[in-house]
């Protein structure tokens, strides 16, 4: 069975977890996403970069309370992509 209608960018465990979390949260940061997804920093960075390049996320690096802080927010394009992905999933799940 092939899942060609499913957005390949979202159809991966880590990237889907990140987007799902950002859908239900108004904002997040790198450490929080790392904790939630249980991913390594390197892997998470790579996957976040892919989502950012697709325009699904905005990653802002800066400082918070004198510590380095990476804020991550989902974009309208990311929300639309997630909704389209869920709609496509329904097609596979429905009998």
């Amino acid at each position: 069975m092939s899942f060609k209608d499913l957005n390949p960018l979202l159809h991966s465990q880590l990237r889907l977890s990140v987007i799902s979390y950002l859908i239900s949260n108004t904002e997040s940061d790198f450490n929080q996403l790392k904790e939630i997804t249980d991913a390594t920093s390197g892997n998470l960075s790579v996957q976040l970069k892919k989502l950012e390049e697709a325009g699904y996320l905005v990653i802002k690096k800066g400082f918070k309370n004198n510590y380095q802080h990476t804020a991550i927010t989902i974009t309208k394009k990311g929300i639309d992509a997630f909704e389209a992905y869920v709609e496509a999933l329904k097609g596979y799940i429905k009998p």
């Binding site: 899942f3 991966s12 465990q13 880590l14 990237r15 997804t37 249980d38 892997n43 790579v46």
Partner: peptide, 9 residues
């Protein structure tokens, strides 16, 4: 968690 592909379910 890795970046493996998933089944729809």
């Amino acid at each position: 968690m890795d970046s493996k592909s998933l089944s729809p379910q």
